[in-house]
Structure formats: C-alpha cells, structure tokens
Nucleic acid binder design. Structure first.
Length: 430
RNA sequence: GUGGGCGUAGCUCAGUCGGUUAGAGCGCCAGGUUGUGGCCCUGGAGGUCGCGGGUUCGAAUCCCGUCGCUCACCCCA
C-alpha cells in the first residue's frame, strides 16, 4: 500500500506551503503583539491525564474530548483547551512571580467533534492571560491586546467589533427583574441568541423558563440597551450601578488606548463557559457571516477551584481557523511565495566552484540565493530565474571570472552591472 | 448526533436519454543548441473518473454502501 492510499484524518489539516505561510503570518503577528504587551510565551503538554478535564471542565468539553487509553493503561486526552494546564503551571510558579503575571501560548488544541466550516478537530489558539490583578484596567488591557492581535493582521474597526459585557451586571439585572438564580442560565441561553432568532421564538423560550410575560419583554430589550440606558432604568439598584461603573471603566480605558471604535457594550453577550465571573467579551467580524474570532473574560475563581493558587485572572482564546478564513475572505492573506533575491547563472561547469563561492558569500549576507542544481543552458537558467521571481540574476561566466568580476542583472528593469569578485568573496562586512 | 448538496489530471472545470484508447485551459517537464528571462511554437508526463459493491453485453454516467468536503441544526475553542 502506498502512503497516498491512507488519507489524513477528518478534521486535521495538512499545511502545504501556501497554508503554512498564512499560519506563520498569523503566529508572527500574534507573537509581535504579545511581546509589545509584555507577555512571555509558555507551552504545556499536548497530551494530559483525562481527569485533568473531567474534573472541572464543563460538560460540553468533556463530551468532545479526544481521549483514549494509552499503552500503559492510563486514560489520557489530547488537550481541548489550555486553561487547565495553564492553571496548573501558574499554580506551580505563581508564588515566586511578580504580579500581575502575563503569559501567552499558541497551543494546538483538539476535540472529537463533527468538522464544519471554521471548526475542525484540531486548531491553534492564541491564549493570553493576566493573573493576579482585579482592577478593570487589566480587563481593558487584555481586550486591547486581543484587538491589537487582529489589527496587526490588517483588521480594523470596519471589520471587527468587540462585544463587551459583565456577568455581574447581567446577573444583577436578572435578579432585579425577579429572576431567581436557578433560572439565570436558562435566560443567558436565550439572550445569547437574541440577534439570531425571532422575537416570538425568544419569547417562547423565556416562557418555557417560567419568566412572566411583562418581564419577558423587558429582558428581550436588554441586548439593545446602551450602558447609560441600563443605568437610568435601574438607577436605584446598587449592585447594577457598581457593575455598570466597572464596565464603564473598562470601555473608557479601551477608548483612551485607541480602541473606542472597536468595542461596545452588549448585554446580549453571554459566553458559554461557566467559569467566567466578571467581564466577558467576544470579537466578531462585523458582517456576522463567521462566528466569533475571539472570546474571553475574567475568571477570578477558577484557579482556586482547580486546586491551585487563589488569584484573580482573566484571558482570552483566539483560534486560527476562523481567523484564517476571515483574512482570506478580506484578501489580507499574504502572498505565499518566497521572494528570491539572487539567481546565480553558471555559464558552464568550469565556473561551478566560483559560482558556489559567490552563492555562499551572498547567503552569508542573508540574501536568498538559488541556482540550478545541474548544468544547463544560460537561456534556460534565466527562464528559471524569471519563473522563480528572482530579483536579480548573477552571471558567473569564463570571461567575467577572467576579469575578476561577476555580472549582475536586475530582472525587472534589465539593467546590468558588475561586482568585484574579490570584494564579494572576502568583503569587509564579514 | 440529525438532515441537505457535492467528490473527473497539481488547480479551475467540461464530459449523463450508459457505448470505442476520458478532454480543455492554466500549471509542470523537455525542446526551439552551445553567455541572457518574461511572448510565442512543438512535444511530453500526469487521472483505477474518492473508495467498495450492485444493475447491465457495456458505467465517470444508474442504484446501494462507505470515506471525504461542504451547508444547516446542535454546540462551542
């Protein structure tokens, strides 16, 4: 059986050079931005004990675990998210690290689920987290970093928007509306669909959650309200005002940092993960054709609940699959071809030694150099140089070498010149 | 997990009332000769028509299954 008979697994990608170029383009942008915000990179094991996830992760994630029994009989799982590993690593070192801690990672994550557009069984996800700071300034910082990571790739406020909310605010509003705690999750689920479903459908769902008719109408208005309207409507509720103040600070800081047009309050935003305790946000493409590009929030209780240090924390995850599709759709994906600087034309094998020395010298100058790997006609070599898009051809022929030079030719203008061999081979710069 | 659409050369696709060695464009390779490319000309390689089974004298074309892709649902990273 040849290797071609065995297909790659469903939901797993093969990165041919064009795809790999886009992936590296994205990773490089992420790393540049992370560095600018003072984040240091870490990584954990791709394979973890199954119980790391079954113990504390949500039901949904457990149901999609890519798990199996290893040859030693141990139940293991490919990591579906980074947070548990991150929590363990942070807990091991947090005591000795200055706070706040700023760490980022680009793990490959896995889950066993039906692949579809923007969602595979494997993806890379930028994770950025801040640990040890509860001030709203940290919330603004992490959201700014997320937006910057996208802006670095050419996306601006016309392409993307961050929807920002706060679990405490929405929770306080529900309580003020007389919705008991045990029904909050059901209401969140409905609000989350506010922009995708009809009012009738939403109302029916609220009715099913035993919400009274008058309250239903008021709840369904929430996603359309601005922060000021919320403040006015619930002006006498201390808990709501306090949460609104906090959120206001986050948005205000974002504005000062230059992201005012990128972020807006949206009470309809309710992130799926249950461990968020405060600020939550998602970044969406404006058209809404694709899903969220990024999601995150504050999870002040998670580290302690995982048995680690008791420190406030917040962060986000940004996947590469949807992002890559978005960049391609907007024609922001880079040209995958490697730009060749010099193509060395070796007139005959008699000059081969000189040609190789010239190539080595140019490569020491960090130029991208290619030449034919067998003897071929000069015309053929120029054709190849042109085909490869080389910026310059360097002809190494008997007449030139006898004069102690090589001939250069700019491939786009056709202009020719000469370089002294002696200068090139033992130039002053090396 | 549920339902719909699709699956022919590296790429984009033609090719069905089932009928001789399955085509085009682009790309790739080699020539158009021995010191100069982009155009052009000529030639060539490359497909068990996703895979398996069935119907038929005969299937890329019809039927079933399967795998993959894709869209929607579900749900989320």
């Amino acid at each position: 059986m040849s290797s071609e008979d065995v297909q790659s697994l469903a939901g797993f990608r093969e990165f041919f050079p064009a795809e790999f170029a886009l992936r590296q383009h994205i990773f490089a942008a992420w790393r540049r931005v992370a560095a600018r915000y003072g984040f240091v990179e870490y990584d954990g094991p791709p394979l973890e004990p199954l119980e790391l996830y079954t113990r504390k992760s949500g039901e949904e994630i457990v149901g999609q675990l890519y798990s199996f029994t290893d040859r030693g009989g141990r139940e293991v799982a490919l990591r579906p998210e980074m947070t548990p590993s991150f929590a363990r690593m942070i807990s091991a070192r947090a005591g000795g690290l200055p706070k706040p801690i700023r760490w980022f990672s680009i793990p490959q994550l896995f889950r066993f689920e039906r692949p579809q557009r923007g969602r595979l069984r494997e993806h890379f996800q930028l994770n950025m987290d801040i640990v040890g700071e509860s001030d709203p300034l940290a919330d603004a910082e992490i959201i700014a970093a997320a937006l910057d990571a996208l802006r670095e790739l050419g996306l601006d406020e016309t392409h993307i928007v961050a929807r920002v909310s706060d679990r405490r605010l929405v929770s306080a509003i529900l309580t003020a509306e007389g919705v008991s705690d045990d029904r909050h999750l059901a209401v969140y689920a409905v609000l989350d669909k506010a922009d995708r479903e009809t009012p009738e459908w939403l109302s029916e769902r609220l009715e099913a959650a035993t919400i009274e008719e008058g309250t239903r109408a008021r709840l369904l208005e929430l996603p359309t309200l601005g922060l000021e309207e919320v403040r006015l409507r619930y002006a006498r509720d201390e808990a709501i005002l306090a949460a609104a103040d906090s959120l206001d600070l986050v948005l205000s800081h974002l504005g000062s940092a230059g992201f005012g047009d990128y972020a807006r309050f949206d009470a309809g935003l309710v992130r799926g993960l249950a461990y968020y305790t405060g600020t939550v946000f998602e970044i969406w493409e404006r058209s809404g054709d694709l899903r969220a590009v990024c999601g995150g929030g504050r999870y002040d209780d998670l580290l302690a609940s995982l048995g680690g240090v008791d420190l406030p924390a917040l962060g986000f995850g940004m996947g590469d699959v949807v992002l890559a599709e978005l960049l391609r759709d907007l024609e922001l994906a880079p040209d995958a071809t490697l730009e060749i600087d010099d193509f060395i034309v070796c007139v005959s094998d008699d000059q081969r030694g000189t040609a190789l020395a010239v190539g080595a010298a140019l490569r020491r100058q960090d130029r991208r150099v290619i030449y034919d790997l067998r003897e071929r006609g000069v015309g053929r070599q120029f054709k190849t140089a042109n085909q490869l898009g080389a910026a310059r051809a360097i002809v190494v022929g008997p007449d030139d070498v006898a004069r102690g030079v090589v001939v250069t030719k700019d491939m786009s203008s056709g202009d020719t010149g000469e370089i002294e061999l002696g200068e090139l081979l033992d130039g002053p710069d090396e």
